[in-house]
Design a protein around this nucleic acid. Sequence first.
RNA 1: GCCAGGGUAGCUCAGUGGUAGAGCAGAGGACUCAUAAGCCUUUGGUCGCCGGUUCAAUCCCGGCCCCUGGCACCA
Length: 513
Amino acid sequence: MKSFYITTAIDYVNGSPHLGHAYEKVLTDVIARIRRMMGDRVHFLTGVDEHGQKVQQSARQRGVSPQQFSDEISAEFRALLPKLNISNDDFIRTTDERHKRVVRGLLQQLHDKGEIYKAEYQGFYSTRQEQFLQDKDRNPDGTWPEIYGEVTEITESNYFFKLKNYQDWLVRFLTENENFVFPKFRQKQVLEFLKEPLNDLCISRPKERLEWGIPLPFDEDFVTYVWFDALTNYYSAVVDRPGVWPADYHVIGKDILVPPHAVYWMIMLQACGLPLPKGIIAHGWWSINGAKMSKSTGNFVEPVGFVDQYGVDPLRYFVMREMSVGQDSDFSFSQFLARYNAELANNLGNLVNRTLNMTNRFAGGLIPAADEAGVPEKELQDLWKQVQAEVPQLWDGFQFNVALERTMAFVTATNAYIEKLAPWKLGKSAEPADQARLRTALATMAEALRLAAHLLEPVIPASATRIHAVLGYQPTDNWADKTQWSGRLQGNRVAESLVLFPRLQPPDSAAKS
RNA sequence: GCCAGGGUAGCUCAGUGGUAGAGCAGAGGACUCAUAAGCCUUUGGUCGCCGGUUCAAUCCCGGCCCCUGGCACCA
């Protein structure tokens, strides 16, 4: 069986992880969990990009070796994963031997095929910044900004990859596979970009200028620069695992779609004769309180600290509930608070607790068997059938925000059902008919909760598991079966109580009241 | 400048060629199992602006305005 193979972009280890990094992991994780739940054999890869000039510079500034520097920052990124409850199967570092070996292999192969050639590159070079400058780096009056120091025109030999030759092929491929990039408008952006002629891609740096990289196998005086190093991770990580490549989805930020993933990576694979990924998902960016994320202004969400304070699942829920995949979204604490209290605490969490409470109070803590379903039960069951059919379709279309909305609507309907039955009144009656209705009500609310938790599982896995646990329920791994309305909870002993999402107070309300 | 996305109730957004929808917030009510939660009812919008097509446009076409992002060997 072919694996479902999904990847995140690898993070560049030149700073600490922020909300954007966390979001991409969570989004990919949600998809991975959904596919596992649906029975696919999933392989989920994430990792870090460790080579390059900025890492070399940062290491030098701190007076440590590049390896030591990236060891430290990589550990920080790696630590984020369990914190976010990410279910990745592998974690790749571009400094891994397994990676370097594959990169060098591909480069050698392309060199042998004549896809890589050496040429001279002429341009303006800033010694202070150790980089070539573009015309757009100039001041409006044509001079170079102060930060570059002395700028001189120099000539440098480098290796180039023949991108140009594949432009027509790529245009044809994207035209024939119109849903290759999600969302669709991003695909248009790629084709727009390809209307201009491509240039060949410079893939090397001389070692005297940059030594923190993978040496070219055919010329050890150079290291390969950025794209052959970074993009190849998706392939190098699974080269020894038969049946995994090609990737089903690369999940990336919109900033690295064009040209790296949609152009360079596709052409690299094609030139190497390797199968192409089946799709690319380009997600949007988070702003914080309506403004661009920025460390210098403190407009920044630090995921580890946030999780420590509010929990993993609330963060996961918020980013999936709030963002329409592909669009940008805003993160504000007040919006987080509103979602948290309204949907997680009041709607879902409170339903869990009142269900446990009533089962304990009116049925001795054992979930009763339901009598024959009346009108209210049938209505709720019909709604479940709708939601159960609709949510997986929404998942397929990456509309996780809508899927969560529908799931929560089912939770709301369950709360409304409880009001209609009013078990607390039935519990005071000795009439056999009322007792039967009471048993039915308790069984129905527990069953509804069990089912809803299954739809929430990919997004808030730990909480879903806790809900199932307090219902005395052990899920099986047959999706179609376990999402059927049933009486399988009958006789289970429930927990005494559970405050799943403690209600949060707005920061400034404590003083007032 | 070019390209793309967006401009719909106080807020976040959904939506369709035929009297505008949801959630949250606000207001009122009945209830009490529960995290002062839940449920019911309800206030609220010239659907960015101007034209056009149409019996009929928020949805189609043209123009304009505003916000956001991208514009290559910089990551």
